Amino acid sequence: KQLNPTPQQIEQEQLPESLINLFMNNPDELLDYLEYAVKQYPKEHLVSTVYDTILELLLQKYSTSTTEDKKEQDRLSHQIITLLQDSKIGIDVTRAMVACQKYNFKAGVICLYDKAKLYQQILQYQMKNKESDKIVSTCLKYGDEDPQLWIQALSYFSKLKRADGCRKEIQQILKYIDEKDLLSPLLVIQTLSNNESTSLDLLKDYLIRKLHNEQTQIEKDQSEIRRFRQESELFVEKIKQLETDPILCQDPKCSACKMDLDIPCIHFFCEHSFHEHCAYAVESATSSEITYECPLCSGDNRKWLDLINMQRVSKDIHETFHRKLDDQQDKFGVIAEFLGRRLFDKVI
């Protein structure tokens, strides 16, 4: 009767959780019933207690299974992990974590930490259980999201006393730390100095690689400095020429419409020439005088002028802020005023 209840019976009798107590001395039968109920009963009637009970029963069964029956252990382990990973069921995560730790089901603990994106806890748990073989794998899996895992792993292996000095693991970690530039060489050396079995030979490849990269960067920076210096000299020379030498405008055609130039025409310092009606006319804000801008260069010119003006304004704002901060007794009020006026917003 209870295996195929009507919707009214399910609602009135609170199935299947109301029958759990009847199976307390028969865990195998209870597990069979709950697994059947999960498949047959409407999802909206299945509370978290049902799934929590299934999880605990599976964990009990897993903990009592013998290591000889590896196939059964693998089946139960897969079933538990599938249950924990199912996002559609309302399993109590805290209770599930307690149950997994109670029955020492390490894969379940890792799964729950992973589900909650608690990668630091995964690494700490593996360190606590001395699962050295899994630590590097964890860093490889989650290290891109949390690079600090690599630093913690290096610290762990630097303190781990092992005959081989954790050579393989440390080399893997150093390679990643070097690629992502997570630690300075000095901090790496200080960290590894905790391990008496760590030799300089272990650091040789890392230090050589680091020094080579630093040398390459120095050469690149020096090349950039030389390039900027040459460009600066060219700009200075060009400015000097504009100030002292005449400019020859030899293009007989308008730079805008490509028609032959005729009078009146306008020539600019950028060596572009236009008919008067093809150039941009700009009225002065303070007088009736009309000036002209090169249509081809005005966009870039305005951009640079705006940047220069913004730098001047920013400088004035900071000077005013510090002056007011020194003069006023209410320092917090000054800061609040400037923040409220959004005067410190980053200029993009």
Results as ranks from 00 to 15, higher is better:
Ile189Thr: 10
Arg341Met: 08
Gln121Tyr: 09
Gln101Gly: 12
Ser314Glu: 08
Leu248Met: 03
Thr82Tyr: 12
Asn4Pro: 03
Gln217Lys: 11
Lys134Val: 04
Val282Gly: 06
Pro264Met: 11
Ile247Ala: 07
Ala107Asp: 10
His78Gln: 12
Ile173Trp: 05
Gly108Tyr: 04
Thr53Gln: 03
Thr138Arg: 10
Ser193Lys: 03
Glu29Lys: 14
Thr198Val: 10
Gln40Cys: 04
Gln148Gly: 05
Phe235Asp: 05
Ala116Ser: 10
Thr49Ser: 12
Asp164Met: 02
His322Ile: 09
Ser197Asn: 07
Lys346His: 08
Phe332Pro: 01
Tyr119His: 11
Asn195His: 02
Glu11Ser: 10
Lys71Asn: 12
Asp28Ile: 15
Phe344Ala: 06
Gln12Ala: 07
Met127Thr: 07
Met24His: 08
His322Leu: 10
Asn25Cys: 08
Asp326Met: 15
Pro5Asn: 13
Lys115Arg: 12
Tyr176Val: 04
Leu202Trp: 00
Gln60Val: 00
Lys106Asn: 15
Lys128Tyr: 09
Tyr51Lys: 11
Pro7Tyr: 06
Asn104Thr: 11
Ile135Trp: 02
Val50Leu: 01
Lys70Asp: 13
Asn104His: 12
Glu68Pro: 01
Asp260Gly: 05
Lys71Ala: 11
His275Trp: 14
Ile54Val: 07
Thr138Met: 04
Glu145Leu: 07
Lys240Asn: 08
Ser63Lys: 13
His45Val: 02
Val47Pro: 01
Leu160Ala: 14
Thr6Asp: 09
Ser199Met: 03
Leu59Arg: 11
Met24Asn: 12
Ala153Asn: 09
Asn25Trp: 11
Val347Asp: 12
Leu34Thr: 05
Asp146Met: 14
Leu15Pro: 02
Lys168Arg: 09
Ser273Gly: 05
Leu182Lys: 06
Ile335Gly: 02
Glu243Asp: 08
Tyr103Val: 01
Lys258Ser: 14
Ile177Val: 01
Lys102Pro: 01
Asp74Gln: 14
Lys220Phe: 04
Glu219Pro: 00
Lys70Tyr: 10
Ile239Trp: 03
Tyr113Trp: 11
Val47Phe: 05
His275Val: 15
Gly299Asn: 15
Leu242Thr: 13
Lys324Ala: 06
Leu84Asn: 08
Ser284Arg: 09
Arg312Ser: 14
Glu35Trp: 05
Val347Arg: 14
His45Pro: 00
Ser314Ala: 06
